[in-house]
């Protein structure tokens, strides 16, 4: 059999079309592309590494086992985020969680891994003081996000981490556009309040 072409640069819609034709490498490519965004969104919602992995796994299984039902007019990432958000919200409804980890990746085991995956300092940080402030702000923001309502968290994550427009967030979360704007507005105000102590 001829070797399969590399799917790295193939657009999402084409990868999905290949997956719908039963190509396992296309399934794997979808997981490869979106495991980090989906896991991060869920992790910031539920704040527990093992649970987040289980929920991210559930998200991908749901999507991939129903890939034949994918509608091309909807972005694949939006579909994934929608299911990830629903899975996380369902979990939070079942169980209240308040465990938080703010320094580094939830799966970082060693000091160097924690360092490598911890809050990223802005590339343009001008001095060590700026870098320290950015790190402090990152940790504080993670803590502050954990205090937000889950609906606010999802909106803020999609807006700032996934760089989605308000319209895309509304479509992804099945919310009216005005509600999304309100949630993000309120979330920012709350975050500003939580981070007030860093202003000085």
């Amino acid at each position: 059999m001829a070797p399969r072409p590399d799917l790295t640069n193939v657009p999402d819609a084409d990868v999905v079309a290949l997956a719908q034709r039963g190509r396992e490498d296309a399934f794997r490519e979808i997981v490869r592309r979106y495991e980090r965004p989906v896991f991060s969104l869920i992790y910031r919602m539920v704040r527990d590494s093992a649970t987040s992995e289980d929920l991210a796994q559930d998200t991908f299984i749901k999507v991939l086992n129903h890939i034949d039902k994918y509608r091309p007019e909807f972005k694949l990432s939006s579909w994934l985020f929608k299911i990830a958000n629903n899975v996380a919200i369902d979990h939070l409804r079942r169980k209240q969680l308040d465990t938080i980890s703010v320094s580094g990746s939830p799966n970082a085991a060693t000091e160097s891994e924690i360092e490598a995956t911890s809050f990223e300092i802005a590339d343009g940080a001008e001095s060590a003081l700026d870098a320290m402030e950015a790190r402090e702000l990152g940790g504080s923001i993670e803590k502050a996000i954990a205090k937000l309502r889950p609906e606010y968290r999802a909106c803020i994550m999609l807006r700032h981490v996934e760089d989605r427009s308000y319209e895309e967030i509304a479509a992804t979360l099945d919310l009216p556009l005005g509600t999304v704007k309100t949630y993000i507005h309120r979330a920012r105000i709350e975050l500003r309040g939580y981070l007030e102590h860093l202003r000085e």
Binding site: S40, Q57, I61, H160
Partner: peptide
Amino acid sequence: RVAGGLDRLTRFAPSPGFANRVMAQVQVI
């Protein structure tokens, strides 16, 4: 400042082998 901090938040990676665990439960037909 807050928005900038949010924009700089990184994505976390799941533990190694995540894709294999997913694929083990997906029916590729």
